[in-house]
Deep mutational scan, measured.
Amino acid sequence: MSIQHFRVALIPFFAAFCLPVFAHPETLVKVKDAEDQLGARVGYIELDLNSGKILESFRPEERFPMMSTFKVLLCGAVLSRVDAGQEQLGRRIHYSQNDLVEYSPVTEKHLTDGMTVRELCSAAITMSDNTAANLLLTTIGGPKELTAFLHNMGDHVTRLDRWEPELNEAIPNDERDTTMPAAMATTLRKLLTGELLTLASRQQLIDWMEADKVAGPLLRSALPAGWFIADKSGAGERGSRGIIAALGPDGKPSRIVVIYTTGSQATMDERNRQIAEIGASLIKHW
């Protein structure tokens, strides 16, 4: 067993022997301040990774656009098919120029040779490549099948209805392509620590998230040296922004954090800054 596999296998073990965790309302004060600064709703939840206990939450059962955070769930569904012998990570998928959609920095470079399922998941999570996500959605049967996968996990809230990039439209009061912070946090925890996926697939999923290259201005910008984070960000229309993450000190994750916002007129930089400040408060009061 590799060191990384050992780390993920012992996530519940280490967490069980940690000192009790206590909620700190100071972080919620910052979440509410972010709402004021952005002029928009902000949803927040913080779960203990081992027990699933909610440590703090704000608007945990209000719907927010998922945006690209759905790509972690998508690759979880792909990995479940791999575990069941219905898919192979090494299978190569070929596609054409007509398949390319807006923001496809990886797939646009491989029109000639195609990409493997493993490479597509890596591109979808680490670079948020939209064509990679659409190609992977095709392998599982489309958005409705991802929703069905989530329902089978016990998540009857999260739903995907459309493809990239239309799913980022974020129309107010439109339930399409949305989740709730509580539902997303619980589902992410199941994917990373539950028995739904094999140990190898859980490790692969967290490795992809740990290698995320496009979430630097968010929670990662607030992390002290030595902290662990595996995350996936999302951005959408109407001032929408979000991030889902597993993080913790001492090089291992111990909490799940989900943050979503929508309806702001603020710039992307300002949305990023507010999420980073929430992260800084979380870490300060850990």
Rank of each mutant, 00 (worst) to 15 (best):
P60M: 13
A211F: 10
R118D: 12
E26G: 15
G242I: 01
E169C: 05
P217R: 12
T186R: 10
W227H: 08
T112I: 15
A148P: 09
Y260F: 06
T178Q: 11
C75E: 01
A182L: 11
G226P: 06
A84T: 09
E237I: 06
T112G: 14
L73E: 03
F64A: 01
I171V: 15
N98V: 11
E270G: 06
T261Y: 14
I171M: 15
R176A: 06
I275P: 00
F58K: 15
L136V: 10
A222R: 04
T158N: 02
G279K: 01
S51Q: 03
A84L: 07
L146W: 12
Q204C: 14
L197S: 09
E164G: 00
L74S: 11
C121L: 03
T198W: 05
L150M: 15
F58R: 12
P165F: 13
P172I: 03
M268P: 12
A40K: 08
M115Q: 07
L89N: 04
D212R: 11
V42I: 02
P253V: 11
K30V: 09
A182D: 06
E62G: 02
V72N: 01
T267S: 08
I259V: 05
E175Q: 08
L188P: 00
D250M: 02
L247G: 01
L150Q: 03
M184K: 01
I244R: 00
M153H: 03
A40P: 05
I243D: 13
T27A: 10
P143M: 07
R159V: 12
R81I: 06
E195C: 15
F149L: 10
L160C: 04
L111K: 02
D83W: 05
I171A: 15
I206Y: 15
I256K: 00
H156V: 07
E166D: 13
R118E: 13
P25N: 05
D36W: 06
T116R: 11
H285M: 11
A185H: 01
A222Q: 11
R271N: 11
N134M: 03
T186F: 13
A183N: 15
I93R: 15
F70N: 11
A77I: 14
A222F: 02
D113Y: 09
D99R: 05
G39L: 08
D83I: 02
P217V: 10
W286A: 02
T138P: 09
S264E: 07
T179R: 00
S264D: 08
L100M: 13
A182F: 13
R176T: 08
S57R: 07
Q204F: 05
K284W: 08
L247Q: 09
R41D: 12
S68K: 00
A77W: 12
T107L: 10
T193A: 06
T179H: 00
P165V: 05
Q97R: 10
N130S: 14
L73H: 06
K213W: 06
L160T: 12
L191C: 13
A84C: 09
V157Y: 15
I171W: 15
E175H: 14
P181T: 09
A211R: 14
G226S: 12
V82W: 11
S96W: 09
L188H: 06
E210T: 14
K190P: 08
A182Q: 14
I125R: 00
P60H: 13
C75I: 10
T261I: 10
G141R: 10
F149V: 05
H151A: 07
G85F: 11
P105H: 03
A211E: 15
T112D: 13
L111F: 03
T131G: 03
S240D: 08
E145Q: 11
S96E: 12
S201T: 08
Y44K: 00
I275R: 00
N98E: 09
A132F: 00
G76N: 01
D48S: 04
E169K: 06
L47W: 11
D174G: 13
W163G: 06
R189N: 07
P249M: 12
K109Q: 13
T261K: 08
T186A: 13
M127G: 14
G226R: 08
S122C: 06
L146C: 13
L135S: 07
H285I: 02
L219P: 06
G90R: 10
E61Y: 07
R81V: 06
D207C: 03
F70W: 03
H94A: 03
N152L: 12
L146M: 04
A77M: 15
D177Q: 01
D250V: 04
Y260Q: 06
F228H: 15
T179Y: 00
A185C: 06
I278F: 03
S96I: 14
R81D: 05
M66Q: 12
Q86N: 14
K32R: 14
R159L: 08
I229F: 13
M209I: 14
F70K: 13
V117R: 07
R162W: 06
L74V: 14
L218R: 06
E195L: 01
E195S: 12
G90E: 10
I206D: 11
W227V: 03
G263Q: 10
R241N: 13
L167C: 10
R92C: 13
L28R: 07
P105F: 05
D207M: 10
T267V: 03
R220S: 08
L73N: 10
D212K: 08
S104K: 08
A133H: 01
I259Y: 03
L196Q: 11
G236D: 06
W163S: 08
D174S: 13
P172N: 11
R159D: 12
A215W: 09
G239L: 01
A34I: 06
R189I: 05
E56F: 07
A215I: 03
L219Y: 11
P143A: 09
S254D: 14
M268H: 09
I229D: 01
K53V: 13
A148N: 11
G141L: 14
R220A: 08
L192D: 01
R81C: 07
E119W: 15
R81W: 12
D33G: 02
E169I: 04
N168Q: 10
L160P: 07
P65C: 13
A84F: 07
G226L: 11
E119C: 12
Q86G: 08
M127P: 01
D129Y: 00
I259F: 04
R271P: 13
T116V: 14
V78D: 01
T147D: 06
G248Y: 06
G194C: 09
A230M: 05
A246W: 11
V78I: 15
T198C: 14
D250E: 03
D155A: 02
R59M: 13
V258S: 05
K232H: 00
T262F: 09
K71V: 00
G194H: 14
L199H: 10
W208Y: 09
A84D: 05
R238T: 04
F64Y: 10
F64Q: 11
L150T: 11
G226A: 07
H156A: 11
H156W: 14
G236E: 14
R202D: 12
L38I: 04
G234T: 01
G216E: 08
S57L: 07
R241Y: 14
E62D: 02
E61L: 04
I171H: 15
R91H: 10
D129E: 01
N173S: 11
D83E: 12
A222W: 02
R271A: 15
A182G: 11
V78E: 12
T27D: 08
P181D: 00
G154M: 15
T126M: 09
F64T: 02
D231S: 13
D48W: 09
T139W: 07
R41N: 12
H151C: 11
I171F: 15
W208S: 09
G216A: 10
G43M: 01
P165R: 08
M268V: 11
D177C: 09
A246L: 09
D36L: 09
R220I: 10
A124L: 06
D207I: 13
